[in-house]
Design a protein around this nucleic acid. Structure first.
Lengths: 123, 123
DNA sequence: CGGAATCCGAACTGATACTG
DNA sequence: CAGTATCAGTTCGGATTCCG
């Protein structure tokens, strides 16, 4: 598990350590839509492997951005959700998505089927 | 140079390709303070090597987020600045910084000497 | 269902030396 | 000053197998 430094020069560096990498922002984004189970997340993000999904979720959990709830049933059920603090990142994520949409439009990049910042703003 | 895909499922993925990694957000952040020369950026971010600085700046330039201006002088002078589109990310970066600050405060992580979202909001 | 453990190549990053 | 080039280390990420 990636350990945070005890001291940072700039908040941006801390943010990169917390949500940097290929998957975390995407996971937070989808978990902000609502709580999700492990295999539900796998279906939502088909490109991610089980290993990476587990790993990234554990790091998010360890840093207090995601909550993991285990229901002691058979078959087992595990539900992931964002914490209050993780949810505070929502506006930033929407801003990122909007900006990404603008870029895609400007550059003629095709965007599919996923919620976009623009969708959100229309609600 | 990292090539973008021709199609994305989610804007978030595009954003990650554009500004993901260890350095790009940090560079955009500092360039938003004002135009900077190569060695000026190195002093601002002492941990970055020349190689990575060049590489990341070139990618940002290639994606249209940063502009590189060469003054044909001796000694050479090269100035980097954000493009209009790169600057559109400013509010998002400030949001990230603010969130990072909150996290640092909550967790008792020390933050030094760099501009923070909070500083910005007080202006 | 929701993982853990292992292996391995690819990608990222850094150190160092050199250059117009 | 503003880079290139080369080499080497480390980490990341994916494939596969196994498990309660």
């Amino acid at each position: 598990m990636k350990e945070l430094q005890s001291e940072y020069q700039c908040a941006i560096n801390l943010v990169i350590d917390l949500i940097g990498g290929k998957w975390k922002v995407l996971l937070l984004w989808h978990l902000n839509e609502g709580d999700k189970r492990f295999n539900e997340l796998r279906r939502t993000i088909p490109e991610i492997t089980k290993k990476m999904l587990t790993q990234q979720l554990r790091e998010l959990e360890g840093h207090g951005l995601v909550k993991r709830t285990v229901f002691e049933e058979v078959p087992p059920r595990v539900v992931y959700s964002t914490t209050d603090f993780g949810r505070k990142l929502q506006p930033v994520l929407y801003g990122m998505c909007q900006w990404g949409d603008d870029y895609a439009e400007k550059e003629g990049i095709q965007m599919n089927s996923c919620w976009t910042g623009r969708d959100f703003m229309q609600k």
